[in-house]
Amino acid sequence: MKVIGISFVLLLALMGVAAALDFFGGSPDLNASIRNIFNPFLVMETIEMVIFIFIVLCVFIPPVRQFFQKRNKSKQ
């Protein structure tokens, strides 16, 4: 879980960095630069989308499994 948390915090912070750079680079306002971050995800093929979701979901597998293992152990 910790790992997920770390990754998420880092991702958010990095998106902030990207948006900030975009803003400094001459984007009209912060709103636009935030939109600029997400627009590459707008055009996606189905297969691409599936892979994308799959890859992201894979991040959650080990912690979730760990969680269940721990619960099983505590039950025993």
Partner: peptide, 28 residues
């Protein structure tokens, strides 16, 4: 090593988000 994959995904996502176009990417 637990962190490798999640951070890999972060880098992957960021690499897409980093710029809308190649010129923007290069100019930045």
């Amino acid at each position: 090593s637990q962190l490798a994959y999640p951070l890999g995904v972060v880098v992957l996502l960021l690499s897409i988000m980093i710029a809308g176009s190649l010129p923007e990417h290069i100019q930045e």
